[in-house]
Design a protein around this nucleic acid. Structure first.
Lengths: 420, 420
DNA sequence: ACATATAATTCATCATATAAAAGAAATATC
DNA sequence: GATATTTCTTTTATATGATGAATTATATGT
């Protein structure tokens, strides 16, 4: 073991060995373009002030970006109040590129077509199923979605520049290999070759929770935060984390499994084989296994867990206290799980989303109050909680982020070198 | 509420609003210097290859840094094997600056003097106490430590360039204000003015766990990791987190409170007033409140909790199964807490340190095995756990990091502008 | 009409890094 | 031992990229 007090065996050195400067400084054009996109519209002078660059640079950069077809001037009379020469607003050219974002799930697939500005031009859904399918079958479904979108958006498939896909599973984002997915037969599926055979554009695959987190970072409440957490409650309980404006993926790409954090030593049995997981109190099967107590057993037999849950929720709303108690207990455990997130991360905001946000008992005032109590300490300000109503299209929209982001980087870089 | 599907009310834009490019690109000189320091020794050609800069730049940069007195050539015959002109190794000039790192605690204060290379030249300790003291009294103790170090290290106090201090409490690292500290009377103490009146050098204060985390990042096992967690077990159970080579401080500077994550719904009562906190099973008072069962009550009365714990540990080692059980149970809860960290962060490594690492029962093989089981999933590789024997000097050494880091930045920047 | 204010452009200039060539200092080979 | 080879370092001419200051453009206010 290392001797800490005298680390310097001659030439050992100190400090991090890995360059944190992997974050290559974004070029002026990149920064400029990103600033315009983030603000929707911005004049040269505004951007120059914001980025602290000279007016001359702003002109040069803008001229390049306009020449490359990435930005354009807006000539609407933007009623100015001040004196002086009015500024000319710039905006991203919507038709510079189109991208598709897809969320795949066991209930339905959803997809959106977005222009280069980030506007959603069209959205489509396709029924899905619980059954595992072959990679080719899943790719067929993705193809269908893409073609539907092209038709609905009135563009040709060839005009789509990139596709992003979010799916429930474990994905190595770097390589694009789907290591495991509940929708797929087989492990370690690499869609890239088969996709490349069909389409001439890059494909970005990631865990669906990560895609939702990106949606919040790009389009939602996370836009003005450098750090925040997203908690999703669907079949499982997942988490996405943004640290310093960047999605944190963990070291194994497994995703951050809030659902399998333990909220009770030796607690209820979970699907994963462990005891006391949050999911063992909050998952479908956790809630439905108590349904028999609350509802008339006769009705239960040939129903899916989802239907049962809906039924249970309706009953609770209708005044069945036993049914309400089931949700309330789940809410209490959720409060514990969330409080642990707050204690460990201390984020300024947690956004909760996912299909189960329908069950508002889980987020009753007393649940949130209990969570606040559990995290209260002398100095900690309470962490804000936002409940985001569930909408598959938001996930799909998030899936466009890696696609649109990669395309912009590529285009702006190309514009840099071409002007050289 | 925002409409997610169509976020683009004209000009709304998309993408993060806060520039992630806060990470200003480190200048070539900064990168070069950091690389030499990280590697202890490196030749111009090595650095040029590593940083992918031209040989010409390496010469220019080196010449500046040597002229500024920050680097120097090493002329020892480093037995080369290859052909060609032998490279000339470069190293940081140790005497370019001296810094002091201090760890303040209720049992003893520790401090080290370090040269610019990061070598520890001297270490001293001072007895402390549980009693709260005035800021002035604490500053007096810091002054004593600094003077002791100067004497022992045979340099004048005036040659010390910066001081870093880690203390148990809540610190706003930016402003340097100690918002709360168990050693201090009063809240929101700002040492800066009083310190400036005594010393002509900057003072960096932070939470002690953060300082230990920096020690691991700069001198320890974290050096070759971009992400890892540090867990400290002392009076409380704390955590430090490094994400992307940077210490993550959370949004409120409260520190990441692993000790107050809940491992049991409605569990044991904790000092914080909540139930089921990890600390309620692992803290001094948690262990000692069961001591009466394991040991002869007569011996217990006039002993400090620390002594009691040591006694309990000795008994356990001597074969007292009741005593051993107390530790074992605490170990099981620790396993739960650690497994939650793994599930939420998925770090490649967790380093455990702090005074309580003496009690090896807490880290028995079966405890670590249980933790591994709790985090096992289809795809997750097990997270490495390193037990770092406790050494206050390591914490103090970590406290030099902000000091040495700030000084290098300042010196290298100065060298840049002066050569302009 | 004229002063004032702000935006955008032009252009000479500077700072930084590079590529290529030359020089330096070792080993390998004949 | 002379020469070739290899590698490191330095030199120098050059390209890049951003800047600052002057200039032009276009509005408002009096």
């Amino acid at each position: 073991m290392m001797n800490y007090m005298y680390p310097s065996a001659i030439g050992a050195g100190c400090g991090p060995l890995l360059q944190s400067g992997t974050t290559k400084a974004a070029s002026l054009r990149q920064q400029f373009f990103q600033h315009v996109r983030a603000n929707g519209r911005a004049a040269r002078a505004d951007v120059a002030r914001a980025l602290k660059i000279s007016a001359g640079s702003a002109t040069a950069v803008t001229s390049d970006l306009i020449a490359a077809g990435l930005l354009r001037e807006v000539h609407e009379p933007t009623r100015e109040t001040g004196r002086g020469r009015p500024s000319v607003a710039l905006e991203v050219v919507p038709s510079a590129a189109y991208v598709v974002g897809i969320k795949l799930s066991s209930r339905r697939h959803s997809a959106v077509l977005s222009d280069f500005v980030g506007n959603v031009l069209a959205g489509v859904t396709l029924p899905s199923s619980n059954q595992r399918r072959t990679p080719t079958q899943l790719l067929d479904q993705m193809t269908t979605l893409i073609e539907m979108l092209a038709q609905k958006g009135e563009i040709s498939v060839g005009n789509i520049g990139a596709v992003g896909v979010g799916l429930p599973g474990i994905v190595d984002m770097e390589s694009g290999v789907v290591r495991w997915c509940s929708l797929l037969q087989g492990d370690d599926v690499d869609f890239a070759p088969a996709f490349a055979a069909r389409f001439d554009m890059p494909l970005f695959i990631d865990n669906d929770t990560n895609m939702l987190t990106l949606a919040e970072l790009w389009f939602g409440e996370g836009r003005d935060k450098t750090d925040f957490a997203v908690v999703t409650i669907e079949n499982g309980v997942g988490m996405g984390l943004v640290v310093n404006n960047t999605l944190y993926r963990g070291s194994h790409g497994v995703g951050l499994e809030l659902g399998h954090t333990k909220v009770q030593m030796d607690g209820a049995l979970c699907r994963c084989g462990q005891r006391g997981c949050l999911e063992a109190y909050l998952g479908d099967y956790a809630l439905t296994r108590e349904v028999g107590v609350a509802l008339d057993l006769g009705e239960m037999h040939n129903r899916t867990p989802e239907d049962l849950l809906d039924l249970l929720f309706d009953e609770a709303k209708a005044g069945n206290t036993a049914a309400a108690t089931i949700f309330r207990r789940a809410g209490r455990y959720l409060a514990v799980g969330l409080s642990n997130v707050v204690q460990l991360f201390d984020p300024p905001l947690i956004i909760i989303s996912g299909e189960r946000t329908r069950y508002d008992y889980l987020f009753a005032d007393e649940v949130l109050a209990e969570m606040k109590t559990m995290t209260l300490s002398d100095m900690r300000k309470p962490c804000a909680i936002a409940i985001r109503p569930w909408d598959d299209m938001v996930w799909a929209h998030g899936a466009t982020v890696p696609a649109i982001s990669a395309l912009s980087d590529q285009f702006v870089t190309a514009c840099e070198t071409s002007n050289a």
